[in-house]
Amino acid sequence: MAEEVSLRRPEAEELAMRACVAAGASQASARSLVDATLSAALFGPATLGFPHFVDYLNAFAEGRIKGDSQPSLQRSFPAFMVSDADGGIAQLGFDLAFADLVETTRTLGIAVFTQTNSYTAGELGYYVRRLAGEGLIGLAATNANAMVVPKPGGAAVYSTNPMAFGFPLGDQTLPLVIDQASSATAFVNIVQAAEQGQPIPDGWAVDENGEPTQDATKALTGALLPFGGRKGGNVALFVEMLSAGLSGGPWSLDTPDFRSGNASPAVGLSIIAIMPGLGDERIRRAHAQTIRLHDHGVFIPGVTGIPFPPSPTAELKIPRTVFESISRFASLQAERN
């Protein structure tokens, strides 16, 4: 197991903020990104917390993210909001529209937020988790550069094309949050396996020749596979249409690599927010059903295995290599001061 560094939340937050600013982010972008990173570290997949945060730092420094972006928001229809992230991070555009999105949903019962021209969306569960915190149901979809082949030997035409769904369960529990890629695994899991020299399961990826591989390093030069074969490929296409199609952002085939070069991926993000009826009856009913399912041995994503409420003294565990990468950026800010 990779060596880890334990930090209290305030320490991790302060380090991440310094690293963001040193990498070229404005205070507003840094705040939005660090909030999303901490949420992923506490409640989401660990790989989409601080390990993915390093991708953002590199992207700020190398020009794939505009550090001083000024997202703009327009309303095409009463319940349809369109954001241009101005080459910045997806989280900032979402944060600036969040209050309006919540108010519109509560007024009209449903609202759509769609955004283009941003860096990759990060942990997609973050967006629906935020909505669930306001008592709203959320559905989110996004894309990135092509890295998924519909079948072995085919061309990479989709990104991992994740989708997330959130349902509030009341104040005494975390919300139900389903966040999963349409590929057999998330790309960050391949990166982590390659860095640690670990094999990957059969069915996750193919090498550069289109042959199935369990070598993570070969998978990085090849492509990922969809989960469930053709049905997973259909889900990837559904997400592609909901994110790139609805937002007007680039298709995955046309999206620049989010880990190299100096061009913004400019990807699409679409979020649908829904009121779960009047009052709390539907929320209480959903909570009761998750308890019932849990008693049948069902894993409830977003809830099972996650302490609630979070302990104020709990420490965040960060892989040492990730901690060192973040610290190198943060030290640049210290030198400037």
Rank of each mutant, 00 (worst) to 15 (best):
Q27V: 12
V206H: 10
L242R: 03
G302L: 02
A273C: 08
T120C: 01
S264T: 12
A12R: 04
A36W: 00
Q214R: 06
A23K: 08
H294W: 13
F299W: 14
F113P: 05
L278V: 15
C20R: 06
A90F: 02
T185R: 15
G138K: 02
V112P: 11
R106M: 08
A25F: 06
T107C: 13
L269N: 14
G24W: 04
G87K: 01
P152Y: 00
G24D: 06
S264Y: 03
D215C: 07
L136W: 12
G228W: 09
S182I: 02
R230Q: 15
S69M: 02
S72T: 15
Y126W: 09
K317D: 04
I65A: 00
F43L: 11
S72M: 04
R320E: 02
N234G: 15
W251D: 12
G67H: 05
I326M: 11
G268K: 02
R284H: 13
H294V: 14
N262F: 10
P226A: 03
A23W: 03
G109R: 05
E335C: 00
V102E: 11
Q198W: 08
P312T: 10
L237V: 14
Q214S: 06
F113E: 09
A219D: 09
L237P: 09
L242F: 14
Q180T: 07
L237D: 10
L269G: 07
